[in-house]
Amino acid sequence: MKSPHIYRLLGGAALVSLLSTPGCGDKGTAPTAAAPGLPAAEPISELTVARVDADLSKPDPDASYWRSSAPGAITLIAQPMIAPRPALVTTEKLILQAVHDGKHVAFRLSWADPEMSEAGGLGQYSDAVALQFPFNNEKLPPVMMGGDGDPVHIFHWRAQYQHDAEHGKPDMASLYPNASIDMYAMEFHDAPGGSRDEREMFNPGVALGNPQSFHKTAVDEIVSEGFSTSAVQAGHGSDGRGVWKDGSWSVVVTRAMTIDGGSTLAAGGKSAVSFAVWQGGQAEVGSRKSLYMNWLPLTVAP
């Protein structure tokens, strides 16, 4: 390898630069665009969950009861502990509001994101936000994904999942409308196909029951006991709804206050919460995220 010979073969630097358009994950600087849609908020070091007289079982970003909770801002950093991680923080400020009705607790989370990303195709990633709660309110687990025998309970909203919930899981024709597909094994336009098992044999994730391969509600419930251990579990009616407008997301995630075998918030009680945000347009996914580096103390109004 004395010289990069292929450069000469391919006709020099002009073609090389033509081919080397930055790919996903190489998009450079973090977005700094102002977000007119973001509410004004003061920095906070703890969060109070206000009690409202409303049904919070369904998420509603535009409900009037959000006026009961003063927006508070926390500062996120680029996930620092484990590679791969963002070279730069992409979401610096997350604005929080929280309310409960005695049965459900809802959080409205707002942040600046210059482009709306729902993922779908190859090399595309979804905007997302996650809330993390301790199983044990008295002795908090390690804030980064919990610890061995010391689990955390995560509620993970993705724009991609919300698209599923509102429009159905996209099929290949909607992901790639110009693609030409003759037929799939066991699926024919004008003849009886195979059984469901026979058809699913050709879709490994589906055949093996991977939750990722199925139609999503807007929110995944996840239990984690440390890095690399997170696993989606059966949900407990948590739900989410986000609106992207004028360069910012406003996402409501609602969950039951009491979840057997999970995290629990009690009216008049205390707990803690932490957050992570992914900007799909910056190819963020998995450990490439902005996060809150601490447990944020949570006080639930009686």
Binding site: G120, P204, G205, Q212, V285
Partner: peptide, 27 residues
């Protein structure tokens, strides 16, 4: 295929580009 969450880190990392993302199964 039961653990994969379709982050695509393997697609990025394999220099020979022999990991591929399935947009239907999302793995």
């Amino acid at each position: 295929q039961t653990r994969c969450k379709g982050y695509g880190e393997c697609v990025r990392a394999c220099p020979y580009k022999k990991s591929m993302y399935n947009p239907w199964t999302r793995t």
